[in-house]
Simulated scan of single mutants.
Amino acid sequence: MTDQSAPVRTRVDLPRMPASGPLYRKALLGALPGLGGRRAAEAPALELATTGVTVDRAHLADYDRVCGFPLTDRLPATYPHIMGFPLSLRLMTTAGFPIPLTGVVHVGNRITVCRPIRADETIDFHTYAENLRPHDRGRQIDVVLVGTVAGEEVWRGVSTYLGKERTPGGGERRDRGERPAPPAASARWRVEPRVGTDYARVSGDHNPIHTSRLGARLLGFPRPIAHGMWSKARCLAALDNRLPEAYTVDVAFKLPVPLPSTVAFSTTPTMDFALHDTKGRPHLAGSVQGRAPY
């Protein structure tokens, strides 16, 4: 029996993982007046896929060093995200995608590790967008990226993006209630400017908001900010010896981490975790939930 409510998507199989550079240039051109085109009112009925993606072990080691993971033959939970991100980037730069890539805000990310993935395994990826919804500052959409090995789902990531727009309201609103006191820090990290350029190198995300003072200023920040997925990866690296074989890690990105800065990492016995600045303002809040391996 088929699910009548499930959206019907056209699947397009790509011969290889797209290159990120041309897609970023396409996004920048689309931001110019008169070149961006109309934005769709719905998530695209499109699924992009590619097969046979392998791990470059030297690149994996470089990524582990940048994010603080130990060097092992297992992929960190956040590594498949950067392996498959160019595919999602290709989706987000298709004509009429509801939210323009330039200036988009990454507000949340949820990753499910169904089982450990070895560095010698070959991964197939597919990606699609869903759940376009209003927000008090514009519109949000979820971009789903799924990794499979020999037909078995081993990894799933859901990134939530906010496209800022002038809207009459009525959508999801940020919580503006009183901020609770931050938990006691278990570690403090100095985040240097090279974090932006190093993570751009290993992730392929060369958004100038992370690597250039001028680029950051053009997008409304006085200096570059760290990638949200670096912050998530750095937190998971600090929890590495406590992570189960299979789990879901959910993160909400709060205030950006300016480069340079000092951040305070905290965690609880139940595997909630957070990053705060030196004044107690939140950069990130997350949680890990164990699950039975597939």
Rank of each mutant, 00 (worst) to 15 (best):
87 L>A: 14
264 A>M: 05
36 G>V: 12
4 Q>V: 07
52 G>K: 05
73 D>R: 09
5 S>G: 09
247 Y>C: 00
205 D>T: 04
243 L>C: 08
75 L>R: 03
261 S>E: 07
71 L>P: 01
286 G>Q: 10
170 G>E: 14
193 P>W: 07
51 T>C: 01
214 L>H: 08
282 P>G: 10
288 V>Y: 15
238 A>E: 15
132 L>F: 06
150 A>E: 06
90 R>N: 04
40 A>L: 11
284 L>F: 05
267 T>S: 14
275 L>T: 04
4 Q>F: 14
44 P>W: 04
261 S>W: 03
217 R>A: 14
75 L>D: 00
212 S>W: 01
236 L>V: 07
35 L>F: 13
70 P>I: 08
119 A>W: 00
117 I>C: 01
128 Y>F: 15
22 P>H: 11
34 G>D: 14
105 V>M: 10
166 R>F: 14
174 R>W: 00
12 V>T: 15
264 A>E: 07
223 R>F: 11
253 F>W: 10
261 S>H: 03
202 V>I: 05
177 G>M: 00
63 Y>I: 03
212 S>Q: 13
201 R>D: 05
289 Q>Y: 09
160 T>Q: 13
112 T>S: 13
220 G>E: 11
243 L>G: 06
18 P>S: 06
226 A>N: 09
214 L>Q: 07
266 S>G: 14
87 L>N: 12
199 Y>M: 02
165 E>M: 11
241 N>C: 08
28 L>G: 13
37 G>L: 14
50 T>M: 09
47 E>N: 04
141 I>R: 14
185 A>R: 12
292 A>S: 15
245 E>V: 00
286 G>C: 09
17 M>V: 12
171 G>D: 08
84 G>E: 01
61 A>P: 02
44 P>A: 07
205 D>K: 02
178 E>V: 04
221 F>V: 07
120 D>V: 01
90 R>E: 03
96 G>Y: 03
190 R>W: 03
72 T>F: 03
259 L>A: 12
42 E>T: 14
22 P>S: 13
156 R>V: 10
80 P>V: 14
184 A>R: 13
80 P>F: 07
28 L>S: 15
67 C>W: 00
33 P>K: 11
111 I>Q: 11
58 A>Y: 05
156 R>Y: 00
17 M>G: 12
158 V>F: 01
64 D>V: 04
122 T>Q: 05
264 A>T: 05
179 R>N: 06
61 A>L: 05
72 T>E: 04
27 A>W: 10
255 L>M: 06
285 A>K: 09
53 V>R: 04
55 V>G: 01
290 G>E: 15
269 P>I: 02
278 T>S: 12
123 I>V: 10
285 A>C: 13
5 S>P: 05
54 T>D: 09
230 W>S: 08
53 V>N: 10
247 Y>W: 02
137 R>L: 15
108 G>A: 13
161 Y>L: 10
233 A>D: 07
86 P>Y: 03
272 D>L: 04
141 I>Y: 06
162 L>Y: 03
215 G>A: 11
122 T>P: 05
50 T>I: 03
222 P>K: 15
139 R>A: 15
224 P>L: 14
64 D>C: 15
251 V>Y: 04
115 R>W: 10
263 V>M: 06
249 V>H: 01
199 Y>E: 02
250 D>K: 05
262 T>E: 15
216 A>L: 06
124 D>E: 11
230 W>A: 12
237 A>I: 02
248 T>I: 06
289 Q>C: 09
251 V>S: 03
160 T>C: 08
119 A>P: 02
11 R>C: 13
